[in-house]
Nucleic acid binder design. Structure first.
Length: 330
DNA sequence: GGTATTTGACCTTC
DNA sequence: GAAGGTCAAATACC
C-alpha cells in the first residue's frame, strides 16, 4: 500500500473515531440515552482506534532497533550500523538538540548537569564556528554498552548558550536527576508490547524532558537567567522506536475524553502521569508537530510541567521543539 | 593506580 | 581533498 493511500486510510479511520466520539458525547448529554447505543458507540470507537493503530504498526513495525548490547569493536566493525556508530554516522539513532544557557563564566567544560555521566572523547574545531565542538559519550559505554553520545558547542551568536546535540539513548539507566525527578509511568496495560530497555530509556529520557527538566526558552530569556535554560528539538531519524511511541500513545491516549473538536488543530496535554488528554487527533499530522504551549502562545511559562503538545500543521510549529522527521509514519 | 581529559591520527562521507 | 566524528596514546588529576 502506498504511503499516501495508507495515510488516507488512517485519517479516515481516526476521523470516524472522532465522529463516533462526538455521537457518544451527544448521547451522553441526553437525559435518557439508551445504554446499548452508548455501548455500541464505545465499541466502535475502540475498534476504530485499534484499526488505526494496527495500520501504524504495519507501516513501521518491520524495522528492528539496532543492537545496543554491543560487544565493543569487533562486532561493530562488521555491522554497518555499528560501523556507522564508530564513524559518527548514527543514521538510525534518535537525535535531538537543545540549547542550554550557562553563566557567562562557564565554559563547555563546565558542569552541564543533565542527569547522565559523560566522558569527553574528542574536541574539534568546526569550520565556520568560533568555538570548538566537544564530543562526549556515556561513561558506561564500555561497561554497559551504552551508546549515548552528545556534542556540545558554544553558540556563535550568544556565547552564553551552548548547543547540545544528543544522539542515541542511554541503556545504562544511569539517569540520576532526571529519572529521580520523573520516573517513568508504570505500564498501563501489560498486554501491550513492552519496550525494550533501550526504548524504555529513550522514552524515559524524552518523557523526563517533557515533564520535568525541560524549560522552554522564550523571548523572555532574562527571566530565567539563573537556570540552565534548554531549547530542545527532537529528531527521530529512523524507525527504531516508532513502535514504542505508538504503544505509548496507545496506552496514554484516552479517547473518551474527547471534547467538541475545534477544527484542524489537535492538542495533547502532558501531565505528570503521561499523555492523558486528547482532542481531535489527526494521526498523519502526528509526525509533523509537537510544540509547546509556552513557545507558541508566547507566554512566559518556562517550565513544562503542564506542557501541551500540539499536533497541527507545520506552520504552527515552534522550531525549538520539534520532531523533525517527515517519514515518521511513512 | 584508576579515571578523566587532551590531542594528533585515522576513517568515512561528500 | 575537506570536513566531521571517533580512536587511542599520552598526559593530568585525584
Amino acid at each position: 500500500m502506498g504511503d499516501w493511500e495508507q495515510k488516507n486510510h488512517l485519517i479516515n479511520e481516526l476521523a470516524e473515531g472522532r465522529e463516533l466520539a462526538k455521537q457518544l458525547q451527544s448521547y451522553l448529554n441526553l437525559p435518557f440515552s439508551p445504554n446499548e447505543t452508548q455501548e455500541v458507540l464505545v465499541q466502535r470507537i475502540i475498534a476504530s482506534y485499534e484499526k488505526a493503530l494496527s495500520m501504524l504498526n504495519c507501516s513501521v513495525g518491520t524495522s528492528s532497533p539496532p543492537s545496543l548490547n554491543g560487544s565493543p569493536r569487533s562486532d561493530q566493525d562488521s555491522d554497518p550500523e555499528h560501523r556507522n556508530t564508530r564513524l559518527g554516522k548514527r543514521k538510525s539513532m534518535p537525535k535531538w538538540t537543545k540549547q542550554v544557557r550557562v553563566g557567562p563564566g562557564m565554559g563547555i567544560e563546565g558542569p552541564l548537569e543533565d542527569g547522565f555521566s559523560w566522558r569527553k572523547y574528542g574536541q574539534k574545531d568546526i569550520l565556520g564556528a568560533k568555538h570548538p565542538r566537544g564530543y562526549y559519550r556515556c561513561t558506561h559505554r564500555h561497561g554497559r554498552g551504552c551508546l549515548a553520545t552528545k556534542q556540545v558547542q558554544r553558540s556563535d551568536e550568544d556565547p552564553t548558550i551552548l548547543d547540545v546535540s544528543y544522539k542515541g539513548s542511554h541503556t545504562c539507566n544511569n539517569s540520576s536527576s532526571l529519572a529521580a525527578a520523573a520516573p517513568p509511568p508504570p505500564a498501563a496495560d501489560q498486554t501491550h508490547q513492552q519496550p525494550t530497555q533501550q526504548n524504555q530509556s529513550e522514552e524515559q529520557l524524552l518523557m523526563n524532558y517533557f515533564r520535568t527538566g525541560l524549560k522552554v526558552l522564550t523571548d523572555d530569556l532574562h527571566t530565567n537567567h539563573q537556570d540552565n535554560t534548554v531549547i530542545p528539538s527532537f529528531h527521530y531519524p529512523s524507525s527504531s522506536n516508532i513502535q514504542n511511541w505508538q504503544n505509548n500513545l496507545a496506552e496514554n491516549f484516552t479517547p473518551p475524553f474527547l471534547s467538541p473538536a475545534t477544527s484542524g488543530t489537535s492538542y495533547f496535554s502532558a501531565s505528570p502521569s503521561g499523555f492523558n488528554s486528547y482532542q481531535n487527533f489527526q494521526s498523519d499530522q502526528l509526525t509533523e508537530i509537537i510544540s509547546s504551549s509556552a513557545a507558541t502562545s508566547g507566554t512566559n511559562s518556562p517550565t513544562i510541567g503542564n506542557l501541551d503538545f500540539q499536533f497541527g500543521n507545520a506552520h504552527e510549529f515552534d522550531p525549538h521543539f520539534t520532531f523533525d522527521n517527515p517519514g515518521f509514519f511513512s
